[in-house]
């Protein structure tokens, strides 16, 4: 697609308003969550329960985002601490 026509994009935005509004809300929430997780593992590798306790986020949400951030190259697994693995921000993040 070349540069989309402004008017046509405006009409499409109107048509998909409900989806777009929800997606924008999601982006806001997700950015906050990712920022909080990143803040915890920038200097030190931590386990999911430690990140969850420090950020007050549910541990399953923390793991979900750690998995996604690993997939997109922002987080690496470091080593093991008891029954849990530790994660740290990657050099690229």
């Amino acid at each position: 697609m070349g540069k989309p026509d402004k008017e046509a994009m405006k009409a499409l935005r109107q048509q998909r308003k409900a989806y777009i509004d929800r997606a924008k809300q999601e982006i806001k929430k997700q950015r906050k969550l990712i920022k909080a997780i990143k803040g915890q593992i920038r200097e030190e590798a931590k386990t999911v329960p430690r990140i969850a306790a420090a950020t007050k986020l549910p541990s399953d949400q923390v793991l979900l985002f750690i998995a996604a951030m690993r997939k997109y190259g922002q987080v690496i697994e470091v080593d093991k601490d008891g029954d849990y693995f530790t994660y740290k921000l990657s050099a690229e993040a």
Partner: peptide
Amino acid sequence: DVQHCSLCGMCAKVCPTEAIDYF
């Protein structure tokens, strides 16, 4: 997945082959 797309235009901007077609 349009149900989750914010229509921010980023994908169209970065696509090297102009493959994105929102319409």
